[in-house]
Amino acid sequence: MTTPVAASTPSAVLDRASLVLDAFEGPGRLTLAQIVRRTGLPRSSAHRMLERLVHLRWLRRQGHDYELGMRLVELGSLAVHQDRLHRAAMPYLHDLHRATGHVVHLAILDGADVVYLEKIGGRTAAAIPTRVGGRYPAHCTGVGKAILGFSAERPLVTSGAAALSRKTRHSISTSAQLSSDLAKVRADGIAYERGEALAGFGCVAAPIGNFGEVVAAVSLCGPLQHMQLDHRLAAPVRMAAVGIWNNIEGAVRVQPTMQRECRPLLGTSPPTRLRDAGKALTQNLHST
């Protein structure tokens, strides 16, 4: 006979704590009543859990309102900076931003969403509503399509014209449209996004990893009128993705086939290739 797990066991406590913390997904503070509605916990249990989390600095109380605390900020920052993908990517992300002037994103796939691990940019960055730790529907973003296109399994792609959520009128809205777009990503080794996540903004993204081994994606993002959505931005993004993949500790040191267009630069180190691509891009921009 199986003995039921008591509600006071550590696992049950952790489940309730996770439920309470998950209620804070999204901007703004929450009241006790709002947390009770979102979690379904009894009011007394929710109140005890909230006060304990405040004591541990996982939450912060302002009057009758609660918000995420500094301990979560500290732990989240540590998690990102201890991640080997993030460490491997940082020099290439900074080089890519310096070479192009556009906002740079590093993202991974989590379910149907992408989660941003890094965002680097200048004044334009404030106009793009992404943040480290933030989520966005994968099919609406360049980074999401780059990862999905190079993944062996693509759970968002189903038969027929299954509806997908839309962020703008340009967003992909059916599974059939997404399947067609991902076929282009696999053929070109690059993903383009034109106002699908945010009206008036575009993106060029490349997968980090070979087909079936993709671990993340890197992208350039900016106002559509200032973005060259062609080989001029695709080349440096591809080279950044290859540099990151080769720099990940323990990664397979195989040059992805998507780099065929960059063969003249393959004799140099990845950072040098990226700087050379940046110089070529700057010359192209000045000549136009």
Rank of each mutant, 00 (worst) to 15 (best):
Q82G: 05
P264E: 06
R154W: 02
L274T: 09
P207F: 10
A126K: 13
A99D: 03
L75W: 14
E193M: 14
V80P: 00
P236W: 13
G250V: 11
G28K: 03
S18K: 05
H170F: 15
R154H: 08
V218D: 12
R98E: 11
D83I: 04
R71P: 06
H139A: 15
A197D: 11
A46G: 00
M90P: 02
S287Y: 04
R52F: 01
R154Y: 02
I120D: 01
G69W: 10
P270Y: 12
A125H: 05
H55M: 04
Q62M: 04
V157E: 14
R263Y: 05
V157Q: 14
G142I: 13
G26V: 03
K119P: 00
A79I: 04
Q177Y: 03
C221V: 15
A89K: 03
G101L: 04
R275Q: 15
P4C: 02
T272G: 10
Y192W: 11
S151L: 06
V218S: 11
R253Q: 12
V185E: 09
L53M: 14
G149T: 05
T31R: 08
M90V: 13
R186V: 00
A216F: 12
R29K: 08
Y116G: 04
E25W: 07
I35Q: 02
P223T: 10
A126L: 12
V242Q: 09
L274H: 07
M258H: 12
E261N: 01
